[in-house]
């Protein structure tokens, strides 16, 4: 049995313009301790699949088919206390924009203390400083006193990682944790995420659009397009010999692979030029 089993999952959002299908039968299994990257572009459904693991969909969204099982338990059938327990004991989230997810009215120390006390741990200054030291913050005593808006993006992300890892989650879901960071800070933060996960043996589900970075950190990659996983396999073989035409076009569009004089077209464009419109992700209107 895998730790995460997502089978044929359909997720729909109710919007003023009708129902939008964000996931259209996505299937993904991940074993304990695995590092898996889910790659796709805006609107492909990767954030939805990330939040679906903890049933953390926004209020206007819901499961419309398929199942999500975490450790054998069907998340869709859990009641509120059950969901809370799952989220508290099993899941850790690292957000895209850490400054926005930290509480702007509380100092870093106060927020860390909330998490640690909840777990029955030691919330003394020294213990909190130790937590920050583990995520390689150079001057933890100073950072504990700061408010989120006084942190740089990289530092805020380290704090978010410290908060997520304090619970020793079995599953760590990182939703583009480096999208808002500089290239050089990016590498350090990724190193931190994967080293922390290695130490605790957590399964990492990393949502990303950066194929270059994926190649460095994950042995397995799943590619999403329009609410489905269209390709799933060892990173090396997916990047070397992609099978799905969408993956091929995605690879060709990577800036490091762009060549002058070689025209690159998007998959949607290719489909449109081949035969009419591609099957649309919108249902009803």
């Amino acid at each position: 049995m895998s730790l995460i089993e997502i089978d044929d999952l359909v997720v729909e959002f109710r919007t003023p313009r009708g129902t939008v299908r964000a996931l259209a039968g996505a299937t993904l299994h991940a074993s304990a301790g695995e590092r898996i990257a889910i790659v796709g572009e805006s609107g492909s459904g990767k954030s939805t699949i990330g939040t679906a693991i903890g049933a953390l969909l926004p209020a206007n969204g819901g499961f419309a088919g398929g199942t999500v099982r975490v450790d054998g338990v069907d998340v869709g059938t859990l009641d509120r206390p059950g969901l809370r327990r799952l989220r508290r004991e099993t899941l850790g989230f690292i957000p895209q924009d850490p400054i926005a997810t930290l509480n702007p009215t509380m100092r870093v120390g106060g927020q860390l203390a909330l998490v640690v006390r909840d777990l029955g741990g030691d919330a003394s200054r020294a213990a909190l400083a130790q937590l920050l030291e583990e995520v390689q913050i150079a001057d933890p005593a100073d950072v504990l006193r700061r408010f989120p808006h006084q942190l740089s993006g990289g530092m805020a992300q380290r704090v978010a990682i410290a908060i997520a890892m304090a619970r020793r989650p079995r599953i760590l879901i990182a939703d583009e944790p480096t999208a808002a960071l500089d290239a050089n800070v990016r590498r350090e933060v990724l190193k931190l995420v994967f080293e922390a996960a290695e130490q605790t043996g957590a399964t990492v589900v990393w949502l990303s659009h950066d194929l270059d970075a994926v190649a460095k950190w994950c042995r397995r990659v799943a590619v999403m397009y329009r609410g489905r996983i269209v390709e799933d396999g060892p990173t090396a073989s997916v990047l070397e010999a992609p099978e799905h035409p969408y993956t091929q076009s995605l690879l060709a569009a990577m800036p490091s692979r762009l060549r002058r004089g070689v025209e690159v077209r998007t998959y949607t464009e290719m489909l449109a030029s081949q035969a009419g419109e591609p099957d649309d992700a919108e249902v009803g209107a």
């Binding site: 572009e41 659009h209 076009s249 569009a253 990577m254 762009l258 690159v264 998007t266 998959y267």
Partner: peptide, 14 residues
């Protein structure tokens, strides 16, 4: 921009 859109815009600028 997303990678594939980025590639389109870069090609356009060239």
């Amino acid at each position: 921009l997303d990678v594939s859109v980025q590639a389109q815009v870069l090609q356009l600028v060239r």
